[in-house]
Design a protein around this nucleic acid. Structure first.
Length: 657
DNA sequence: CTAGGGTTAG
């Protein structure tokens, strides 16, 4: 049902290749027949057309150059080099085959220089089979040829194959050079079997050091990136710090590493260090993208605005990745309008810009708007990508648009011919589960063709948490404990569900399980930006100089609000305690501390903006609703999933989150 | 023939 042929497979079925025909055609005969049909007189000098072919290539007239090729008795290596480059540039596989065939006919099949060029050309044309064929058929392989095939394999995603060739290279005693190492490291990154590939990467790291490349900027930067992609921030940082010479790319790689691995604060810190300490290093668009991601993660609006100003000043505002990152930054900082402005002012947009806008509406709970924009995009003839669907389905989920989501999911398969990934299923399970249609969600999982990934079971478990379904939660967590045994969040969710069902023995059992694995519950943390500085608040935090004051304010407010009808949701406390103790614990939640901090430190009338690292608990949610009315303040809270805009006793999520 | 970047995610 989902076997969609890629254009490439289709092409290979009918296009001529240098290998399946005309291979042994007599070059002289070929020249004769074509000369008689297209050149009745003799328009060119018969001595040497090499220079003519070469200049046609340089002028981009590939077809004419190829046409002349049979007229040349002795095409040179340089002529073929230019022809190959031209084919790669024009992305023409059929011309590539013609040139390749002629090259073989002219006796260049064993030329390692041209073999390298051919491999690079086929790589550019996304045809790994033909690149591999060139490699397999040449007997004299220089290190250039090896590097070219490693490059092609890694670039096109065949990490395992590249690594096995790298192994073979070592086995036969072919010496690696600086290029070999970078490609081999890239191969580790794209390789499928993750833990194993990291191990291979470390092995190559050792080879690099053994051969004295420890101060080679490119290799070291690739190493930083490799560790970053595996989430080994510590190793990446060790390599980065050890580099005697760093350039902009190295700094950007390390900043990206922090930004992508949940360490946005360190990303901004390193960026600052780069600007201050490294003299002449000027950030470019790539650097800015990572910095914007860090701002987005932190909800650091003022920082983000400074970066925006810098982008405008440096004229980086026509670069699409920068603009998409800006849209996302503004949206994630709570400034949906500013993100919309950025989008509207772009004169060129691509699918990623649209996806940024759609997901912006999603996290702000504007599901209908996300749907409208999605449809507008489709009507403009832009094909949605798999990520477009994740974004728009996520938006439906946050707004409870169940039927709309189901229609979309259906259209994704039938109309847009996108095979749903495990992430898409996770979105659907979330959509159904959140809407308390847990059985339907379970059925969807049961009907999946592929093995459901952890995201899917995680979505189910999360929904079970919201609707307190013990039985289904047990089923989901059994799968999760196998698929991701070291993810503390799953144990915590299950324990939460047991606690809400007052099954205290089970709570204890799950907590023991958690401890036995040496895992810890991720503690709640909220933060708030006041005058360009970010303050983080944790529930247990004696170091905070204002903690007494914050507690006192919360106790006072809570008492007053309880008289007006606020009822603490003590059921969210995971411990078997009496009501008073539970209420006291509730007041210690980081989000409430942040609210209190905002009330004290933000000026009157200013919106209080808070970000939290976990999902907002029911009690904080109802507490903040009351506070917004009671103190007449607008409070904007971003939790792990989405925004809550509290105003006059109501929340923008309409209690559906 | 080398290195770093955008959108999604329970």
């Amino acid at each position: 049902m989902f076997q969609i042929q890629t254009p490439q497979t289709l092409q290979l079925a009918y296009l001529p290749t240098p290998f399946n025909h005309q291979r042994h055609r007599d070059p002289a005969a070929f020249r004769l027949s074509s000369a008689s049909s297209t050149t009745p007189t003799v328009p060119f000098s018969t001595t040497n057309k090499n220079s003519l072919i070469q200049s046609l290539c340089k002028k981009g007239q590939l077809k004419r150059a190829i046409h002349l090729l049979p007229h040349e008795q002795n095409p040179t290596q340089h002529t073929f080099e230019l022809l190959i480059q031209s084919c790669a540039h024009h992305k023409s596989l059929s011309d590539a085959f013609t040139v390749h065939r002629n090259l073989i006919d002219n006796g260049f099949a064993e030329d390692p220089f041209l073999a390298t060029k051919l491999i690079n050309m086929y790589c550019e044309l996304d045809s790994i089979q033909h690149a591999r064929q060139v490699f397999d058929e040449i007997t004299h392989r220089t290190v250039y040829v090896w590097n070219a095939i490693l490059r092609a394999l890694s670039l096109l995603g065949y990490g395992e194959e590249a690594l096995s060739l790298y192994k073979r290279m070592n086995r036969i005693g072919m010496r690696s050079d600086r290029f070999t190492y970078t490609y081999a490291l890239k191969a580790c990154v794209v390789s499928e079997s993750v833990p194993f590939s990291l191990w291979r990467g470390k092995e190559i790291h050792a080879h690099v050091l053994r051969h004295g490349y420890e101060s080679h900027v490119h290799i070291m930067t690739t190493l930083v990136d490799m560790y970053a992609k595996f989430g080994c921030v510590k190793n990446a940082n060790l390599v980065f710090s050890s580099m005697p010479v760093k350039n902009l790319v190295s700094w950007s790689a390390m900043i990206a590493c922090f930004a992508k691995n949940g360490r946005p604060f360190e990303a901004l810190e390193l960026f600052r260090e780069m600007m201050l300490d490294s003299g002449d290093m000027l950030p470019n668009s790539v650097t800015m993208v990572s910095v914007l991601q860090a701002c987005a993660a932190l909800s650091a609006l003022e920082q983000g605005k400074l970066i925006h100003a810098y982008i405008l000043r440096k004229g980086l505002d026509s670069i699409l990745p920068v603009m998409s990152a800006l849209i996302t930054m503004y949206a994630r900082c709570g400034e949906l309008d500013l993100g919309e402005n950025v989008f509207n002012q772009m004169d060129k947009k691509d699918i990623v810009s649209w996806n940024s806008l759609i997901s912006s509406y999603g996290i702000h709970g504007l599901g209908t708007k996300a749907l409208t924009v999605f449809q507008e995009m489709v009507q403009l003839g832009i094909s949605p990508s798999p990520i477009s669907f994740i974004s728009v389905l996520g938006a439906c989920s946050h707004s409870g648009l169940v039927d709309e989501g189901k229609i979309l999911f259906d259209s994704m398969v039938k109309k847009h011919r996108i095979r749903p990934s495990t992430e898409h299923y996770a979105c659907m399970v979330d959509l159904l589960g959140r809407a308390n249609r847990l059985d339907e969600a379970a059925k969807l999982i049961a009907d999946m063709r592929d093995e459901p990934g952890p995201e899917v079971w995680g979505a189910l478990l999360g929904s079970c948490r919201i609707h307190c379904n013990v039985e289904l939660a047990e089923r989901a967590s059994r799968q999760l404990f196998e698929l991701e045994p070291m993810n503390a969040g799953n144990y915590v969710l299950l324990a939460d569900i047991y606690a809400e069902a007052k099954m205290w023995d089970e709570v204890k059992r799950v907590k023991k399980l958690l401890e036995a694995k040496g895992l810890q519950k991720l503690s709640g943390c909220s933060w708030i930006e006041v005058k360009r500085k970010i303050y983080s608040l944790k529930s247990v935090d004696e170091l905070n100089p204002q903690i007494e004051q914050l507690h006192a304010l919360l106790v006072k407010l809570s008492k007053e609000m309880m008289e007006k009808g606020y009822v603490p949701e003590t059921k969210v406390v995971l411990y078997d305690l009496d009501t008073d103790e539970k209420q006291r614990m509730l007041l210690g939640h980081s989000e409430k501390l942040a609210v209190a901090f905002g009330l004290i430190n933000c000026s009157k009338g200013e919106t209080i903006r808070i970000t939290k690292n976990l999902r907002l608990c029911e009690d904080c949610h109802s507490f903040t609703k009351f506070i917004s009315k009671f103190t007449n303040r607008e409070i904007l809270v971003r939790d792990i999933n989405r925004f809550h805009n509290f105003r006059d006793g109501e929340c923008s999520c309409r209690d559906y989150w």
